[in-house]
């Protein structure tokens, strides 16, 4: 490579000035990033402020869990009651049917034995 070409390359590739205010924009972005990273996440901040809030959160969790258990228990109880009612209804229906069947038999009289005629 000739010295002339190398010289021309160095001249052609001199550094250029960044646009006006470049450093300020970089510093502003860095400051924003620093401020952002210095802030704890919203939920962490909320809980981090006082122990009372932790207690409130725990109570809420317990209440939710309790409600879920209670709801499940109530649903189970209702199911049992419904089952009992269905069984009772079936028993009543069955006894009514039996009575009706007996009445029908009484009305139609005792059955005659069928005799075969001798020739």
């Amino acid at each position: 490579m000739s010295d002339r070409l190398e010289r021309e390359l160095k001249k052609a590739l001199q550094r250029v000035e960044p646009p006006a205010g470049f450093a300020e924009r970089v510093l502003a972005r860095a400051a924003r990033e620093e401020a952002k990273s210095a802030q704890p996440r919203a939920w962490f901040r909320w809980f981090g402020m006082s122990g009372l809030r932790w207690a409130v959160a725990c109570a809420l969790c317990l209440a939710l869990a309790g409600s879920a258990v209670l709801y499940r228990h109530q649903r189970q109880e209702k199911g049992e009651q419904a089952k009992e009612q269905v069984m009772l209804a079936l028993q009543i229906t069955s006894s009514k049917l039996r009575i009706a069947s007996e009445s029908v038999q009484q009305i139609s009289g005792p059955e005659q034995p069928v005799r075969s005629e001798e020739p």
């Binding site: 010289r7 021309e8 160095k10 001249k11 052609a12 590739l13 001199q14 550094r15 250029v16 000035e17």
Partner: peptide
Amino acid sequence: PSHRDPHAHSASDPMLA
């Protein structure tokens, strides 16, 4: 090119650069 660099040479031929 910027000429703030004290080591920079001035371009002799802008078209060539």
